[in-house]
């Protein structure tokens, strides 16, 4: 599949430069360095990979989604992110979620083989390669509190919940609210406001 560089602030580089730990002049200096770095990144030389961004989004979806109480086996059970199809993330997503706590739950990434039970996941990412299995997967997950995320055009129309599309070098979020509701999930209004809402019969724009 085609990999696209996404414009993105160099979060990694910045993350270490916490405010308050340094004098003002140091912070100013750091800011100027970061600004310079950013300018270089934005120039395209150090483009962040598409799947790095997608990994971040997936990670963030866990923060804006409420699962019903019965979705987890125990209060300490982690939020399991399942990946169906070819894994284009590499270790990116693992690195991203390692040690992070969302709603007091750890995050776990599980790459699923076709025979694996989908229900062990809380969030299922269906990659481009599993395009053909979508109807089967959807029907298999029907009624389960599993947030389905994909990167395939027309995913929502087929009963998928969240779709990530690259438009003008930007990731565009589509959400099928009806499917989300049907699965007993709740997506934060803050996210809904950013997303492009689509129905099962709706033709996706762009």
């Amino acid at each position: 599949m085609e990999t696209t560089d996404l414009k993105c602030p160099a979060e990694v580089a910045v993350s270490g430069a916490r405010r308050g730990r340094f004098p003002k002049w140091a912070r100013a200096f750091a800011a100027i360095c970061i600004a310079g770095l950013c300018a270089r990144l934005l120039a395209g030389d150090a483009a962040v990979s598409e799947y790095q961004v997608k990994a971040t989004f997936i990670y963030n979806f866990t923060k804006f989604t409420d699962w019903p109480a019965g979705a987890f086996e125990s209060p300490n059970a982690p939020i399991v992110i399942g990946i169906v199809g070819d894994d284009l993330f590499g270790t990116t997503i693992d690195d991203l979620v390692r040690g992070e706590l969302v709603r007091n739950r750890l995050l776990a990434v599980k790459r699923l083989r076709p025979e694996d039970d989908l229900r062990g996941c809380n969030l299922l990412f269906i990659s481009f390669s599993a395009k053909d299995r979508i109807p089967a997967l959807i029907s298999q997950l029907k009624g389960s509190p599993v947030l389905t995320v994909s990167e395939i055009e027309g995913f929502a129309a087929q009963g998928g919940m969240v779709n990530l599309l690259v438009v003008n070098k930007n990731l565009k979020i589509e959400i099928n609210q009806a499917a989300v509701d049907e699965a007993g999930l709740q997506i934060s209004a803050k996210l809904l406001r950013l997303a492009h809402l689509v129905g099962p019969n709706q033709k996706p724009t762009n």
């Binding site: 602030p9 979060e11 580089a13 910045v14 993350s15 430069a17 100013a28 750091a30 800011a31 970061i34």
Partner: peptide, 19 residues
């Protein structure tokens, strides 16, 4: 999070002034 200006309202304050 990296300190870059993401959005603003009213007068644009240069990043340097944010200190």
């Amino acid at each position: 999070a990296d300190g870059s200006i993401f959005a603003h309202y009213g007068r644009l304050v240069p990043a340097a002034f944010l200190t």
